[in-house]
Amino acid sequence: MERKTLIRNRNRRGPALAYGLPGALLLATVPWATGAPSPGMVGVPGWAALSLATTAVYALALVWALGDRFADEGDPAGPNDDRDAA
């Protein structure tokens, strides 16, 4: 029983998985969708520039997802917030 009470956010595991894996998979498949080499940006092939741009969007999404997940766990400051501020 101890085990079950510790893991209390069962209904939130879906969002946790949703933030990470599909985003990463999407990134890896974008160049596939773009197909053949296209005119380059700053000397880099178009598909590579697009892939990097998508990675940047993914990174921003993860910034938000981290905050959201920590908020799910309760007070994001935690019990040692006074030490953190110091």
């Binding site: 893991i7 956010n9 946790a16 998985l17 933030y19 990470g20 894996l21 985003g23 990463a24 990134l27 890896a28 880099v44 590579a48 892939s51 990097l52 990675t55 993914y58 990174a59 993860l62 997802a65 981290l66 997940r69 920590f70 799910d72 766990e73």
Partner: peptide
């Protein structure tokens, strides 16, 4: 191999799932 930038970001994707808990 520019995809290694994506790989490095995906590590944080892993942390999203485990670090808070």
């Amino acid at each position: 191999f520019l995809v290694s930038v994506t790989f490095a970001c995906s590590v944080i994707g892993g942390y999203v799932m485990i670090a808070p808990r």
